[in-house]
């Protein structure tokens, strides 16, 4: 049993020990509807021009409980079942940036560090001594500093931008794993049930085995 626990601990810990993670800013994710909705709002304004979220449709946003009016503003005259495709064609993207911006539906699960990575990346822009824009987390990134983090020197403004990035990450985390909340809820029931069942099995086991002597 001791070994079992040891192995479990070992594999969990080793799976989180990414090399890049040390310089990431760890965030506590907010998963409530208002935060996710604020994030969606910010993302539709600042990121959606370049990035798609092809596994998310406008209907998903409504079903999650976001404000219907807001969603219909975002989608314009597109049908409700349209996915959040970007407005940037691949050719233009390659011409302008040399790369097609990645789809963001899974981005919160697709990098070592997950949401903390995305957050640190978004707020990681700074002005190098040579006057160029750099990024602490992804130095060679071809994405411009869309949130204006590098230009923000005023602490209040920086805090605002950080809050905005945090909201965007909340939304991206939801988009990457939309059933997470449901999963956790069900998990508490299942594990609670198993605990009771196992305790009862233990009692029955002792009872049956006590017949032996």
């Amino acid at each position: 049993m001791k070994k079992l626990i040891f192995i479990l601990v070992l594999c969990c810990s080793s799976f989180h020990a990414g090399a890049a993670e040390s310089k990431l800013e760890q965030i506590q994710l907010e998963t409530d509807l208002p935060a996710v909705e604020r994030g969606a709002d910010a993302l539709m304004n600042a990121c959606h021009t370049c990035h798609s979220l092809k596994y998310i449709t406008y209907r998903d946003l409504v079903k999650f409980g976001m404000d219907k009016k807001k969603v219909s503003d975002w989608r314009g005259d597109q049908p409700l079942d349209t996915a959040l495709t970007s407005q940037l064609s691949d050719e233009t993207a390659i011409q302008s940036y040399g790369i097609v911006p990645p789809d963001l539906s899974l981005i919160a699960k697709a990098r070592e560090g997950g949401p903390s990575y995305v957050y640190s990346y978004l707020i990681g822009y700074y002005i190098t001594p040579e006057g160029m824009t750099g990024n602490h987390v992804f130095p060679e990134t071809r994405m411009p500093d869309m949130m204006g983090m590098s230009g923000a020197t005023d602490p209040v403004q920086r805090a605002e931008l950080q809050a905005k990035a945090r909201d965007i990450v909340s939304f991206l985390a939801w988009a990457a794993d939309p059933h997470e909340e449901e999963r956790h809820k069900l998990g508490y029931y299942v594990i609670g049930y198993l605990l009771v069942l196992t305790a009862m099995l233990f009692v029955v086991k002792n009872q049956i085995w006590s017949r032996l002597k």
Binding site: H16, R183, L186, L194, F202, V204
Partner: peptide
């Protein structure tokens, strides 16, 4: 069956709370 109960508890912790860690 008792052992299975213990196993399922550990398994379900991973399935419901840490599936992406694997």
């Amino acid at each position: 069956f008792y052992g299975l109960g213990i196993f399922l508890i550990v398994y379900c912790i991973f399935v419901f709370f840490l599936p992406n860690s694997l």
